[in-house]
Nucleic acid binder design. Sequence first.
DNA 1: ATAGCTTTGCTAACAGTGTTACAAAATGTA
DNA 2: TACATTTTGTAACACTGTTAGCAAAGCTAT
Lengths: 215, 215
Amino acid sequence: MGITDRKQRQKEEVRASILEAAWEMIVNDGWQSFSIRKVADAIEYSVPVIYSHFENKDAILLEFNQKGFQLLAESLAGAKAGKEKPADQLRAMGRAYWDFAFSNKEYYQLMFGLGIPTCDIASRIPALADFNQVIMDSLIAMVGPGKKPSFDPWLKYQSFWSMLHGLVSINMVSPSRVESSPGPGGHHLLPQKVLEDVMCSFIRGIEAAEAMRND
Amino acid sequence: MGITDRKQRQKEEVRASILEAAWEMIVNDGWQSFSIRKVADAIEYSVPVIYSHFENKDAILLEFNQKGFQLLAESLAGAKAGKEKPADQLRAMGRAYWDFAFSNKEYYQLMFGLGIPTCDIASRIPALADFNQVIMDSLIAMVGPGKKPSFDPWLKYQSFWSMLHGLVSINMVSPSRVESSPGPGGHHLLPQKVLEDVMCSFIRGIEAAEAMRND
DNA sequence: ATAGCTTTGCTAACAGTGTTACAAAATGTA
DNA sequence: TACATTTTGTAACACTGTTAGCAAAGCTAT
């Protein structure tokens, strides 16, 4: 009975065409403006057939989400493959992560739910300047008054903010995982420990650079 | 002519009640499910009066966005005030940032457009395990084979990921700012430099801890 | 106080969205 | 050919943001 086989194949084809049309829309207009109805229109089927392949809209997005993480993981593995020393591996993976994010913006935004707040927050949020200022001042104060810093405070400001935001947002989108997941040692990891660890590295990095300069 | 005064005041009251109702909705059900129509219903006015106070839905969200950044800036300033040494100031501000984010989840999510992808990505994204693995392996390899690391690899993994994600997402939501904004030195800052800087601190931090242990 | 003007607010519509109940058409089986 | 099953489309429901046009209320001036 090749009949059910063919049916299976046709169903698979429709499924693939749904994903294809959806992806095209996401790439063109961002994942925000992706709509079931528009997909139905694109594949020239009625809306309910989509619901016979995917439970709902989120299920389609989840598909891309998973593929995104898969691609990212492969990307990191590839970058790592060339390097021998672990430190070099980490550096390569960091760059690969960055490259993946920006050469696959659609994936990355979808994976982390980015892209909702309109671009260019900076210009419309005056208070960002205060935020900026209060951190930058402390950074500049890390060097003796009057002296030129051995680092770029603006760069360090961005590093600092990025670190904090990354920590917070990762702990926010998957709280259950980070909070309750036991590490390899089997203990529960308090996210605050990560915070302290990261800040510690950051500050020590600056102090070390400054100390080295005072010769 | 106190008449126009009273009108002004009443208009202000309506505006305030709009924001109040909107905020209540955001706190209760997340900023995703906030709707103009529901606000109109809550304040017992018709929909168009809202449009006479705010240009559109985003304008209302922007209001909270701005207030959020203001509160955050104040929070950091407060935390900083108690400390004398710049390094302590930075540490205090980092903790304040964290605390703000989690005691004002609604604000933080709104400020950075978080909270869209449903919680608990981890359990539904199998590829996350690969991602996890490939990074963790390099971290463990940073210590000699067989030896116990002087750090918690799981903790370092999270730090590493957080750093990267923070960098990427901040550069993604406000690209114009970071890319074209000249630092205090007046030069254009390439985001990649921040990436290299942050990774450098991170890796040096681990190497230093390991070197110190080898006595 | 009444006429006219201006501001204000509401109704109702438009154009979308995700989702689903139900009927019709196509397909397979006897 | 007749029946059963699967597949598909129509149309509805309950929402969303946004706006045009009209009715009501408020104020001003005669």
